[in-house]
């Protein structure tokens, strides 16, 4: 696809952001999903609600609270500032942090469903054969949930691509650092540069559509095979 006169920097920043967010969310989201799928704890509904909040909250609400949480005046922001010498807001790391919260449900929910589908049987069988819990998880639960890992990863990635409200609040719209694709599109529309807006928006539309078609096609096949 020809990009014409469009500046491609926001595209690269967005792809980097989505990649980092997805990779880190695999590490953070998997244990949360595993715990949620297997716990009988009474606080499970609370944890589940917290992980799903980003689905129902308007991104501006999330962005507003993140702005306060990540500020150098707040503990988290101050900790980051002393650790790295840079503020968490207006930085790429800050965007990754915000995106991880924003996309958390897209990682956790498919994995919880998959782990619940695995059930206790195979894990208990592995345990009775002497497998330590982590081994049982890695060699039994993960291979059985392969497809859901793919779905969760793809959904997280594409959801992060389209992120707007949160990054607008905490990113500061800095060209070359925190100006992501959706903000570039917004700026083009607001300044009536519709040709550039079309190029970027159509690219995002086609890409997101293709991703969803792939995910659903894949999901269907999985279900047919199971049923």
């Amino acid at each position: 696809m020809s990009l014409g006169a469009v500046d491609p920097t926001p595209i690269w920043i967005t792809l980097q952001l989505a990649t980092c967010t997805t990779a880190l969310l695999f590490l953070v989201g998997t244990p949360i999903a595993w715990w949620l799928a297997r716990t009988r704890s009474r606080i499970r509904p609370v944890v589940e609600a917290v992980t799903s909040l980003p689905l129902v909250l308007p991104p501006t609400v999330l962005g507003f609270y993140l702005l306060i949480l990540m500020s150098p005046d707040a503990p988290l922001g101050r900790f980051w500032l002393t650790l790295t010498g840079d503020t968490l807001t207006f930085s790429f790391s800050g965007l990754v942090f915000a995106s991880m919260l924003y996309s958390l449900p897209f990682m956790v929910q498919p994995l919880v469903a998959a782990f619940e589908g695995v059930g206790r049987g195979p894990i208990e069988a592995a345990a009775s054969l002497g497998a330590p819990p982590f081994d049982a998880f890695l060699r039994v639960a993960v291979p059985l949930s392969k497809r859901s890992f793919l779905t969760a990863g793809v959904l997280t990635f594409s959801h992060t691509l389209g992120e707007f409200g949160v990054v607008l609040m905490v990113g500061g719209n800095i060209p070359g650092a925190t100006r992501v694709l959706s903000i570039a599109i917004y700026d083009h529309v607001e300044t009536l540069r519709y040709a550039e807006a079309h190029t970027l928006a159509a690219g995002l539309l086609v890409f997101s559509f293709a991703v969803l078609v792939l995910v659903y096609a894949f999901d269907r096949r999985a279900r047919v095979r199971v049923g």
Partner: peptide, 11 residues
Amino acid sequence: QTYALVASGNA
């Protein structure tokens, strides 16, 4: 939003 960036101590 510019005001919010300063008031929240981020800028």
